[in-house]
Every structure is written in C-alpha cells, then in structure tokens.
Design a protein around this nucleic acid. Structure first.
Lengths: 194, 194
DNA sequence: TGTACATCAGTGAACGCGCGTTCACTGATGTAC
DNA sequence: TGTACATCAGTGAACGCGCGTTCACTGATGTAC
C-alpha cells in the first residue's frame, strides 16, 4: 500500500473528528464534504476511500459525538460525591459552557431534528448508539429497577437537550444563564424522586 | 396594479403556509424557495415580491407555526375541565399524532437547532415570537406569580420539544408510543407542583 | 539482495443538479385627465 | 365616456456557487519471487 494502515486510520479519525464538530456547529446539510476534507488537509475526492456516503459519515459522527458526551458525563458523575451523580450530570449538561459550545456538545441538541428526518436505515443505527448512551449513564439515574433508570435517562437527556437547544436561540447572555439556572433546579427537583 | 391587493395577500398567505409546513417537514436548508413557490403554483422569481430574503421567510414561517401551535394548545387547554389545562396541553403535545406530523407541529421540535444557528438579527425576531407564545399559555401553567408561570411555560415546552424530537428518531411505533406515555406521566408529575 | 508487480490512499477533473438572488420584461389593472 | 399613463405581481432567464458522487490516474509502499 501507498500509505501505512496507521496513516489511513489516522486520517479516518481526523475526518470523523472534524465532521463531528462541523456538523454540530453548522448543521449536517450546511457542512459540505469538501469543507470537511479541506479542513483535514485532503481533497474531497478522497472522501470515498473512508466512507460509503455522507449519511454514513453522519452516523459515525453522531457515534463519535455521543461517545465524547457520554464519557464526559460519566466522568463528571463518577467524580461527584456518593449519590450526587445525577446532580453533577445536570449541572454539567445545563451549563453556559455547554450552551456556548455546540460544536463539542450534545448531538441531540445540535442535530436532533436532522436525525429525525434521516431514512429509517440511518435512524436504526442511531437508535443503537442512543441505547448504549442511556445504558452507560443509567447507573446515575433515579429509579427502582434498571429498566426504569434507563428510561429516566432517556427522558432526562431528551428534555435537557430541548432546553439547551432553546437556550441557544436566546441572544442575551444573562437571560441564557438565568434560564439554565432555572432549568437546573427544575430538573434536579423533578428527577430527584422518580 | 395588475393584481388586486387581496390577490397578493392571498398568495403571500399561501407561500407562508406552504413554507411553514415544508420547513418543518424537511428542514429549512433542505426546502428550496423554488420548491415552495412551485407548490404554490408560482415561479421562484416571484418570491422576492413577497419576502426580502429566505431568512425573512424563515422568521415569518416560524411566526406562523408558533401561532398555529399556540392556538391549538390554548384551545385544548380552554376546553379542559377547570384546573386541567396543563394536563390537556401535555397530553396533546406529547401525542402520537403530534409526533407523526412534524409538518404541522411544534416548530421547536422541528427547527430548534436551525433557529439557534441563525444570525443574531433573526434570532431576536424569533425570541419575541417565543415570548408571546409563553405569555399566551402562561395562564395554564403552575406557579405562584405570573413571572413564574411564564418561566415554567418556557421550560415545559422546551423540554417537551426535546422529547418529541427524540421520539421522532425512533423507528418502532410501539417504542415511540411507550416513550410518549412515560414522558406524559413524567411531565405531569413534575410540573404539577411547581 | 534485487527486481517486478500489485495495492490502494489520495488527486483532480468532471458529472448533473439545485441553490438564493437579480433583473429586464410582460401585461392586466387602477388612476388621471 | 374615452384615452393615456403608471403601477407592480409574476415570468423566465441568467448569475456564480457549492453540493454529493464518480472515475481514470498517480506514485509510494508492501509483497512475491
């Protein structure tokens, strides 16, 4: 081969990383393959050596984003005092930092409706990723059974994604922050005793 | 004038109506001006006699959608027994019917991230529309003061939009319905005593 | 060890297409006289 | 009442542009002998 296997894996990684950020920042329809490839330092023609199609890249970028967010949430929950995992998650998710950095944030809040419009085949792959995410963070959720905790995990993150998404529409930083404060206390109160 | 004033107003209305549906169904970036105009029965060149730009149409379509959803929610809340307004709203919003009809549903769940990516000038206009919506439905919300009810209205609809959006990603109708049921009882429980 | 060949990541040009926007023009109507 | 003119919603063609995808080709490397 012309390039070593590590070389290819490395570029694959970089395309994914740039796409995951670009899609969340500007939307999937607005981020072109050409732009992504140029940012990586390659020409757009080379894209199809790495991915079957743009939708294929989309799914892998969603996977990457969910893995990152999931890891971040898990870390913050583990670092919290005993029994305060969910509080830590809510506070991290509904933070100004998260609201101001969609490119490295939760993919639900950035691409939710776009995911919903994808063909069934694409959505099925995304569903599996979302299930893995729910199960990963379920241990920190309230609920008597594991099943309940997984369910609550889904509801909590979907709801918070909606709030984050609408906070990002707001133009006034004070109002954004105040809404996040209100939302944090609302979610902590609501999900404390489920 | 070539056409009467009513004629122009009527076409303006129809462009808006088609766009509001098309944007919510396929996304703003994916619905072209040409497609919208053709669906109305006009050529795309005529678009600029009615709107300054596509972003201008976007804002007016959001306004139209929020007005429709707001009216529907207000109706359902008024029709409910005394004190059951919010319950009726939650049940209508988190219904299968709503989940299956994004084109005529809540614009937050369909275009939230897209709105968040618009330039500040556009977002400011949308903010005003959202405020009007919150104030319209605040009477049915829990909260000791009007201010609290308005705030809770914002949080409730943002959260529900997140859930609706993620339900639309799901491919299995049973799972969609079950998630909506779970979400309804969660929101009713949470927002009952705020 | 040296040579011939196969592999394949990346290139660059091309494909057809639809995008948002502009503009000279049309022609039916309303207005002025 | 009849005529001349102004208005302007809608047309159709053009603008430059970027899109996703395909493909013949390049050329450095790995493999086979």
């Amino acid at each position: 081969m012309r390039y070593s296997l590590e070389h290819k894996a490395w570029n694959h990684e970089r395309i994914l990383s740039v796409a995951a950020r670009s899609f969340r920042e500007h939307g999937g329809d607005t981020s072109g393959i050409g732009t992504v490839m140029n940012k990586v330092g390659l020409k757009k023609g080379g894209f199809y050596r790495h991915f079957k199609s743009k939708d294929d890249l989309f799914v892998e970028a969603v996977a990457r984003a969910l893995e990152e967010t999931g890891r971040s949430m898990e870390e913050v929950a583990r670092a919290a005092p005993e029994g305060q995992g969910m509080r830590a998650i809510v506070e991290r998710y509904l933070s100004s930092g998260h609201a101001n950095a969609p490119g490295s944030g939760c993919v639900r809040a950035a691409l939710g409706p776009e995911m919903a419009r994808k063909p069934v085949a694409v959505r099925r792959r995304i569903e599996m990723l979302l299930r893995a995410y729910r199960e990963r963070l379920a241990p920190f959720m309230p609920g008597k059974t594991l099943e309940k905790r997984v369910e609550n995990c889904g509801l909590l993150f979907s709801s918070m994604a909606g709030v984050l998404m609408m906070v990002r529409v707001m133009t006034n930083p004070q109002r954004r922050e105040q809404t996040l404060i209100d939302a944090r206390s609302m979610f902590l109160k609501c999900f404390a005793d489920l």
